[in-house]
């Protein structure tokens, strides 16, 4: 089964926050980092930037605590995605409290907002100039990382 996930490589992130703009535009037709479901944590003088967003957990804390059944796990093209049913949401913010990633936020309109993977074609990925963000098959990642590790060792030994 395809298990595409949004993955980030912080070594490539430049802190430009184009992902935040793309996300807020996709969902609210305005440019507003505050309404984005992805937030870049910025450490300016360390040149370290980490986009943080919903991990789409397979056993999500937000779903477990949701009293109304609004928060639920769904699938898009075989990938797990945690979605909010805004009709059922009672705005209690239990999910916001439970999420260990800070990825669910009160939307100031009686519900919460979080990453919905844009229905399987994330807008943030499309504007990421350095490809720090990718929407990719996680099953391919260990293989790629094993190869990258081996290549680094080969370079150290004067190969490549």
């Amino acid at each position: 089964m395809a298990t595409k996930q949004l993955v980030v490589n912080p070594d490539k992130c430049t802190g430009c926050r184009a992902c935040e703009l793309a996300c807020s535009f996709q969902h609210y037709q305005e440019f507003n980092p505050h309404k984005s479901a992805i937030h870049v944590s910025i450490f300016t003088l360390d040149a370290f930037f980490l986009p943080v967003y919903c991990a789409q957990c397979s056993d999500p804390a937000c779903v477990a605590v949701c009293p109304s059944g609004a928060m639920h796990v769904d699938q898009i093209d075989g990938s797990y995605v945690v979605l909010v049913d805004h009709e059922r949401c009672i705005g209690c913010d239990m999910c916001t409290v439970a999420c260990p990633f800070g990825a669910v936020e009160d939307d100031s309109a009686g519900s919460v907002h979080k990453c919905d993977l844009c229905g399987g074609d994330p807008a943030c990925v499309k504007v990421c100039a350095t490809h720090a963000l990718e929407f990719t098959e996680v099953s391919d990642m260990p293989r790629g990382r094993r190869k990258a590790l081996a290549e680094r060792m080969l370079v150290e030994r004067g190969g490549l």
Partner: peptide, 21 residues
Amino acid sequence: NLRGVGKTKACFGCSTACGRV
């Protein structure tokens, strides 16, 4: 460069990222 050649720092919304620490 604090984090090596090619690790750059961008201003808001910029795809070029010409800054560095």
